[in-house]
């Protein structure tokens, strides 16, 4: 049924009418029902090499250290585990994390040691982050983003060039933010880069970001919600590894980190990993015992229960207040 959402203006085309349809920066907003009728846009890669010049790197380091990190810590209760081992990395690596919020990239960057962070680029969806000029420029400058095509098309050579040039890459292999907090299927791009370039994959589990700022929110929830970023041990591509196998190992490692965060390291290593665990709380926690868990996936569980589990407030990690 139609519902009138607003009043209509006088005849003609007013500035306000035009502004409502104006695509600031050229990004096209397509109505949902018109998606199947969209004309495929010609491939056009946004050049980001300028964002890796010394001047841009200095600007980014300053922005991340003196603006982004304090902002994150003011809005979120951040806990970082396992980052200390990263300083021993001999060369570039691919950081692979679960993805459920726009907070994930800035959280991960803030969690990295500064020496690594300043040579780390974040891969970002070309169709979203590089669809408009202002978004492309600002994210490339502040987060060092580089575009990758997630809807097929010619693969960009930028990530390969970056790894070859000694840069670390952050990749969210699910391709998009989780709609319900669960970890989705990992795509093969990260494993392919690791295999072809011979660089290790660092699994990263980010827990709490979905609860703090899920899809649809543009600012974290008030109350400094807790988030944890847990780095795992590097996964070195082994001789004979194929794409599917390495992707599976990566996915298992990320799920285990999430499980570890919710329970203990010992519990997590004893339990077979479930690749469809919730980013907020793993299946082995809240959803354990439900049909299809663990190990058989969470597809059979009602969506609300998955969201419920993913948004369950984490236990306070700091010392108990004497006033409680």
């Amino acid at each position: 049924m139609a519902r009138l959402s607003g009043s209509t203006g006088p005849g003609g085309v007013g500035l306000r009418d035009v502004a409502q349809g104006w695509r600031w920066g050229g990004r096209t907003l397509v109505p949902g029902s018109a998606e199947p009728h969209r004309v495929p846009s010609p491939p056009r890669e946004f050049t980001t090499s300028w964002a890796r010049t010394p001047a841009a790197r200095a600007t980014r380091s300053a922005a991340q250290a003196y603006a982004l990190a304090p902002l994150m810590r003011s809005q979120l209760s951040m806990s970082v585990y396992g980052a200390e081992a990263l300083t021993e990395l001999p060369g570039p690596a691919v950081f692979v994390a679960n993805h459920s919020s726009h907070l994930d990239a800035p959280l991960l960057l803030c969690a990295l040691p500064p020496s690594l962070r300043e040579r780390t680029a974040v891969t970002a969806a070309a169709d979203y982050f590089f669809g408009s000029m202002w978004r492309a420029v600002s994210t490339a400058l502040v987060f060092g983003t580089v575009p990758i095509e997630r809807r097929g098309g010619a693969p960009s050579t930028t990530p390969v060039d970056l790894l070859a040039d000694g840069w670390n890459l952050v990749i969210f292999p699910e391709g998009t933010r989780s709609a319900d907090g669960m970890v989705g299927r990992f795509r093969f791009g990260a494993a392919q880069l690791a295999l072809t370039q011979g660089v290790p994959i660092i699994p990263v589990g980010i827990r709490g970001s979905y609860a703090a700022m899920p899809r649809g929110r543009s600012w974290p929830k008030p109350g400094r919600p807790p988030v944890t970023i847990r780095f795992g041990r590097p996964l070195q591509p082994r001789p004979g590894d194929d794409l599917r196998e390495l992707t599976g190992r990566t996915s298992d490692a990320v799920s285990r980190l999430l499980d570890e965060d919710a329970t203990t390291w010992w519990d997590s290593v004893r339990r077979p990993a479930d690749t469809s665990g919730a980013a907020g709380t793993p299946l082995s926690g809240t959803l354990e015992g439900l049909p299809g868990t663990p190990g058989t996936g969470a597809a059979g569980i009602a969506r609300w229960r998955r969201v419920w589990a993913a948004t369950e407030p984490a236990e306070p990690s700091g010392p108990r207040s004497p006033w409680d």
Binding site: A2, L4, G11, Q20, G21, L29
Partner: peptide
Amino acid sequence: RTPPLLVHQGEGFRLEKFPLG
């Protein structure tokens, strides 16, 4: 996501924000 849509109106036209649905 639907922008205001063009509607002809005699010797002129307007952009109309139609109700959702």
